[in-house]
Nucleic acid binder design. Structure first.
Lengths: 229, 229
DNA sequence: CAAAATCTGTGACCCAGATCACAGTTTTTG
DNA sequence: CAAAAACTGTGATCTGGGTCACAGATTTTG
């Protein structure tokens, strides 16, 4: 959590970041509790969406699947992040698929509630706009990068994001838990499972990271940051 | 302009799209005229930015250059589009480079003016948020695509965007004018100039498009849309 | 209007990473 | 707890597109 590349990775939560803790409490008071079992689809792309969720526990995977059936994982969200705010802010359909990879609990917020809250808090709204801009910029930069960077670099960037968000400090490094499968890593970095496998074992023999069962332990964060440029 | 893939391509202008014509007039009244000669740098990344420009005539190229010196063209903006709104909305530095590829005239708007306008028009602000979300979504989708789609598909998408925005209807097709060099096309699609060249001539012999000097004339829009999936 | 700069055209070669094809391991589940 | 399902490991091959290296064509500019 206190990984030094905190500043490199971009924040995922748009809504909550712009709120003061008082405002947050107000909003939460207008929400309803909800939960999803592991593996459940929270919503799928193009379905109508009137609500967003604030995650309290668990993990949610956001993904897009191309017409050709190629899946791409856009984000792994967790406690403190919000899911589905896009469709709510847009007033349209869901723009991606969301699946609970763990058991998830959170608070559900209805579109009308959020929108009236925003119209009453112009200052907060400007903060939200700034967050959206930041996110848009980092995505645009990623897009520019992606065409340039090679696979290893892309995978390194993905790992930085994951460790930054999910890494648990331990005596000998940072543990990524629960584990992320190599094919999921591939879907995040735009690589095949096989390539991910080879790259990770290469890094393992270089001593950058270690594995315990399916979990990765990052031993040399600096080396990883270096590898991502 | 009335190309059928209008709906595929995403709009570039964030600010103006959300305004009613009355509001637009109000904002324009608070702006100052400005102009840039062809080739002039309008602003460059990481410089402080307090103003944005509404383009009236001419063309502005927005680009990012990676540390490795790899340029990527993010957008070609023209009349009706706005330049530099990101830094203004963020209250921070410029997030990309902007260069006038033609002589450009427009109206300059100061940060303070825009911000106070927005706080006074919450409804418009929500529209702006929706626009930002749409843009964010299309960028995210492009990012997901990039790893999947092959070069030809990516170039096809770039061409769709260009013809949609700049194509001029003619008896035998749509003309892209002024011309865009093959290396620029490469910088937009994440390909080398050579690959762009080969792909374009392949399409030419297929009869999808034709060239006159450096200008492209799109003969079969459907074929191009098809090629982009 | 000639020289310089910037584009386009094309072949030869190379390589990162995809695909394919199995084998072994770990986890899930009935 | 055994069978099924889901991961990981690894070699053999294939290939899209990058890199290099020129040659010719157009545009710009002094």
């Amino acid at each position: 959590m206190t990984l030094k590349f905190r500043d490199i990775a971009s924040r995922e939560s748009l809504i909550l970041g712009a709120l003061s803790s008082r405002e947050r409490a107000t909003l939460l008071g207008m929400s309803k509790p909800c939960h999803f079992h592991s593996g459940k689809v929270i919503f799928s792309k193009d379905s109508p969406g009137e609500t967003m969720m604030l995650i309290e526990t668990g993990r949610v995977e956001i993904s897009l699947t191309s017409a050709a059936g190629n899946r791409s994982i856009v984000a792994h969200l967790g406690p403190g992040d919000s899911v589905g705010e896009m469709a709510v802010l847009l007033g349209g359909d869901r723009t991606a698929d969301a699946v609970a990879t763990n058991d998830v609990t959170g608070r559900m917020l209805h579109r009308t509630v959020l929108m009236s809250f925003l119209t009453q808090h112009p200052r907060t709204t400007l903060g939200l706009i700034a967050d959206l801009c930041r996110k848009l910029q980092s995505t645009t930069e990623a897009l520019a990068d992606l065409s340039t960077a090679d696979g290893g670099t892309r995978l390194a960037k993905v790992l930085i994001g994951l460790f930054d968000r999910w890494g648990v400090e331990e005596p000998d490094g940072y543990r990524l838990t629960p584990p992320v499968s190599q094919s999921d890593l591939g879907d995040m970095a735009g690589l095949t499972r096989e390539t991910v496998n080879r790259q990770i074992r290469a890094w393992q023999t270089e001593g950058m990271l270690r594995r315990e069962g399916r979990e990765l332990i990052l031993i040399e964060p600096d080396m990883l940051a270096e590898r991502a440029q």
